[in-house]
Computed example of a mutant assay.
Amino acid sequence: MGGPMRKWERILILEPSQVLQRRLAAGLEQLGQTPVCFQRASALLRYLQREPGPAVVVADCFVPDMDLFSFLKRYTELEGPHPETRLILTCTETYPPPELRPQILSNGADYYMIKPYTAQTLLESIRHLYSSPVPAHIPGVHPAIVDFLRGLGLPLEHVSFWYIASAIQLEMNAGVSVPLKSLYIELGQMYGVSPQGVESGLRRMGKMLTRMGVFEKAPSPKQLIAALVSAFVRERSESRDDAYALEP
């Protein structure tokens, strides 16, 4: 009871359906969490204005009183100074369509979940979003890649560091750009997470590098990987280090 408060102690739920809202709230309460629930985006945004982060916001993509991307814009304006706050968007199989989902993640969301889902699944996703320990099993990554990423200032202890490191390793081994979907699947299998989890982790690292001044604006995962692979190859070339081998 007297221990330190977890970063995501406040769970804010934006769900237009009262039935689903009550069901999710009841499930979370059984698991020891007491969410704050809203049916309208405007009410949630007013709450965030009064009570700024940290928190985790779980919002349905169908926002009844606001366009989805208008909501994302206002959310990022409020929560921009609080990067520890996470936004999970929940959606159906058909809405928003697959081609819009990368835009959702580029405009402020950290993750999206497909309905239906349980309170337990939601908590597991939240823990994944806030987790930072090195995974129990790290697939082989060449030490030169690790040193390169550490030199950029990325935290070695964060699991997303290893997603990027392995992505660079895979592209160096292949000698060509690996299709993004294939990369998500392969990295997900390596680290035991979903492809969406890999994508979310790469986007968080992109945002971190942007805050550090490496990028002018947050890159997409494809832009992030391409830029880092190019920078790594250039660094090795300039150092005239011929010791780099494709196998670590």
Rank of each mutant, 00 (worst) to 15 (best):
E77K: 14
E79G: 04
E79T: 14
E79W: 01
P83G: 06
E84Y: 05
T85I: 06
R86S: 05
R86I: 05
L87A: 13
I88C: 09
T90E: 12
T92C: 11
E93P: 10
E93N: 09
T94D: 14
P97L: 05
P98N: 01
P98F: 04
E99F: 01
R101G: 02
Q103F: 01
Q103M: 06
I104K: 00
L105G: 05
S106P: 01
N107F: 09
N107M: 10
G108N: 10
G108K: 10
Y111G: 10
M113R: 06
M113C: 13
I114D: 10
K115L: 15
K115S: 15
P116S: 12
Y117C: 14
T118D: 11
A119L: 10
Q120M: 13
T121M: 15
L123N: 11
L123Q: 12
E124L: 15
S125K: 14
I126W: 02
R127Q: 14
L129K: 09
L129Y: 12
Y130W: 12
Y130L: 14
S132Y: 12
P133C: 08
V134N: 09
V134D: 10
V134K: 15
P135L: 06
P135F: 02
P135N: 09
H137N: 14
I138K: 09
I138P: 03
G140V: 02
H142P: 04
P143F: 05
I145A: 04
I145V: 04
D147A: 13
L149R: 02
L149S: 04
G151P: 08
G153Y: 04
G153H: 06
G153N: 10
G153K: 04
G153C: 12
L156F: 15
L156D: 12
E157C: 05
E157A: 13
H158Y: 14
H158S: 12
V159R: 14
W162F: 09
Y163R: 13
A165S: 10
A167C: 10
I168K: 03
Q169R: 05
M172T: 00
N173K: 14
G175W: 01
V176G: 00
V176I: 03
V176C: 01
V176N: 03
V178Y: 00
P179E: 01
L180W: 00
S182P: 01
L183W: 00
L183C: 03
L183A: 03
Y184A: 04
Y184N: 07
I185C: 01
L187Y: 04
G188F: 06
Q189T: 11
M190P: 00
M190D: 12
Y191Q: 02
G192L: 13
